[in-house]
Design a protein around this nucleic acid. Sequence first.
DNA 1: GTGATATATGAGCACTTGTTCATATATTTC
DNA 2: GAAATATATGAACAAGTGCTCATATATCAC
Lengths: 121, 121
Amino acid sequence: MSKNQIDRCERNVIHQNIVDAVSGRMPDDTMIYNLAEFFKAFGDLTRIRILWALSESEMCVCDISALLNMTPSSISHQLRVLKQARLVKFRKAGKVVYYHLDDIHIRQVFDQGWQHIKERQ
Amino acid sequence: MSKNQIDRCERNVIHQNIVDAVSGRMPDDTMIYNLAEFFKAFGDLTRIRILWALSESEMCVCDISALLNMTPSSISHQLRVLKQARLVKFRKAGKVVYYHLDDIHIRQVFDQGWQHIKERQ
DNA sequence: GTGATATATGAGCACTTGTTCATATATTTC
DNA sequence: GAAATATATGAACAAGTGCTCATATATCAC
C-alpha cells in the first residue's frame, strides 16, 4: 500500500508477553546511557591504541605521541575522553603527566574483546 | 616561542626504552581496527538497548521496535550494524526474523561493562 | 495472481566526532 | 623575572553516524 509510513507492526505479530517481560526488567535510561558512553570510549582506533599501550606500561603524553606517531595535541584530546569515561587515571611529575589504566575492569573488558577478535581470525 | 607548531616532544623527555618496548609488542593494524569496530558496535544508546533486550530473550524486529518505541526501520538499521559486527545472529520464520546474541563473549563483555558502571554509582 | 505485512535498504539531513592549528597554562631552568 | 618545554584547550572543518522517509523484497493468505 505505501500510502502512509508504517510505524509499528500489527498487533498479531508482536509477542506481547515477551515485550512485557523484557520491558519490566529494562534498566533505567541513566544506566543505559552510561554503559553506551563507557563502550563508546573504546570505539576508536587511536583510543584503542592508547589503551593497549597503557595496558603494557604507564606512559606520558610524549611517549604515547611518539609511539603512535601522532601530535601531542591529538593524544591529549583523546586522553581527555578516556579520563572523562574514567578509563585512565594520571599522576603529575613536574611538567610530565603519566597516564595509566583506571582499574582492573578496564583491562578485563579490553582482554575480553581482544580474545573475541582473535578467535574469529 | 610559538613561531611554529611543535609536533613532537624533545628527545630528552621521551622514555625511549619504554616506547621501544611497547612498540615492539604493538599488535598489527588489522587487529586494532577490528577491536575498535567491535567496541564501536556497543557504543550507542539504541544498540545497547537492543543488546540488553536480546540478552534477556530472543526477539523479532517487531518486538524490539515495540519495546524501544522506535520505528522498525531504525531498529533494522541498527541490527544490520550489530550483524556486521557479529554481535547478533538471526533465524527466519516466515516473514518474521528472530535475533539473538551471537556468542558467550558478547554477554561477557556486556556484563563486564555493566558491572563496571554499577560499581561507580 | 493480488493484497497485506515483516523486514531491509538507499538517500538525505542534522548531529557528532577526530584531527589540526593556534593559543593558553604549568613547570623547570636560567 | 624570561625562555623553554610538556600538556591542555578552544575553534574550525572534514568525515562519520543515526534517524526519517520512501521504496524494495519476501512471505503469507486469499
